[in-house]
């Protein structure tokens, strides 16, 4: 994949279509080969794994897999691509820039409604991390508490909040939506009563800052889209060689998360040490590493293995898509055959 990109870019530079293309291209090649830490070209396959946000212990298990050479042992040279506010994860998989990305079920369904053909082959989270965070002095503990309150929600999350209200027999005019994008300070500054965010992100930051907050998981009140999904192209599963890479990638990742379950703190330390330029704070990472155990490991993962999902979850998600107004999604959007393969001999990858 990477190779053909390079060729195109050279063409571009040569044509001088973009005066900067060639100049910038050079610096970029050097750093990308440096990033993959000198792979033994003959025996390993280079693949890109697109993460859903900037580096943090949120991807701790994956870092462990990388650090302990679990991917390498399976013959993969994995490049981890960071996400961020301006990164389109699904699009990177669709375009072939990444073999697999971490996504969310409703996002995948939307991508497919727009013409992509993506398949979910596993889910890192057993429970959606979406939560409404409020301060301890005015805690929002149930959907009813939202009535008459101001809730900060990013434009992209508005459909989610609307669906949550509908599930709980509330109407949109009972709650005031305040468009807030990336700044959590709207909550501490008192501009909103609650903030739509992720369970293992802002609530942790708030706690580390010494502010008491209350977190209401929407999954506990009927809104539970499958989250941190392993997402690949359907065509990747149909091609024998690529399918094999996908299996190895997921197996390696699951092994990393098994290590994580035993020692989340090691993952936190690794995240801080492996990404010294990401500005991670050890204490926050340690706290987050513990907190996210709640939503990543469950009865189901004990019984079937990490990343498992059930048919009931699939049906529940399909019903949710109807509420969200996403059309055309069916059970075909999920494929458990990779998980079946990985956990053929029991719940350990």
């Amino acid at each position: 994949m990477v190779r053909s990109d390079v060729a195109r870019r050279t063409v571009l530079g040569g044509l001088g279509a973009l005066a900067m293309g060639s100049l910038v291209g050079c610096g970029n090649e050097a750093s990308s080969s440096g990033g993959s830490a000198g792979g033994t070209a003959g025996s390993t396959t280079a693949v890109t794994y697109q993460l859903s946000w900037t580096h943090s212990v949120q991807f701790g298990g994956t870092y462990l897999a990388q650090d302990r050479a679990l991917f390498r042992d399976l013959g993969l040279d994995v490049a981890l691509a960071a996400g961020g506010p301006n990164v389109a994860g699904d699009a990177n998989t669709v375009s072939g820039a990444a073999l697999m990305n971490v996504s969310v079920a409703d996002g995948v369904a939307r991508s497919n409604a727009e013409g992509a053909d993506l398949v979910i082959i596993g889910a890192q989270y057993q429970k959606s991390p979406v939560t409404i965070l409020s301060l301890a002095e005015g805690p929002l503990q149930s959907p009813q508490d939202l009535v008459g309150r101001k809730i900060g929600v990013a434009g992209t999350d508005t459909p989610g909040l609307e669906a949550f209200l509908a599930i709980n027999d509330l109407t949109q005019d009972q709650v005031e939506f305040v468009p807030s994008q990336y700044d959590p300070a709207v909550l501490t500054a008192g501009q909103v009563d609650g903030l739509y965010c992720f369970y293992n992100d802002l609530p942790v930051a708030l706690a580390v800052q010494g502010i008491e907050g209350h977190s209401m998981l929407l999954a506990d009140f009927g809104y539970d889209p499958m989250s941190q999904t392993y997402t690949v192209l359907r065509s990747s599963l149909e091609d024998e060689a690529t399918r094999d890479q996908v299996i190895r990638l997921l197996r390696g990742d699951a092994r990393g998360w098994q290590l994580y379950q035993d020692d989340p703190q090691a993952a936190a330390e690794l995240a801080v040490q492996a990404y010294p330029d990401a500005g991670l704070d050890l204490k926050t990472q340690q706290e987050q590493a513990t907190v996210q155990l709640d939503i990543m490991f469950s009865q189901a993962t004990e019984q079937f293995g990490f990343g498992w999902f059930t048919d009931e979850q699939v049906q529940e998600n399909l019903r949710l898509f109807e509420l969200l107004g996403i059309e055309g999604a069916t059970e075909q959007m999920w494929d458990r055959s990779i998980l079946d393969e990985v956990y053929r001999d029991g719940p350990t990858a």
């Binding site: 990477v2 990109d5 870019r9 910038v24 291209g25 970029n28 750093s31 990033g35 301006n86 820039a97």
Partner: peptide, 14 residues
């Protein structure tokens, strides 16, 4: 533009 450039350049500072 951002996501497009990332796709066009891959990793790095491009």
């Amino acid at each position: 533009l951002g996501p497009l450039l990332r796709l066009a350049y891959g990793f790095g500072d491009g």
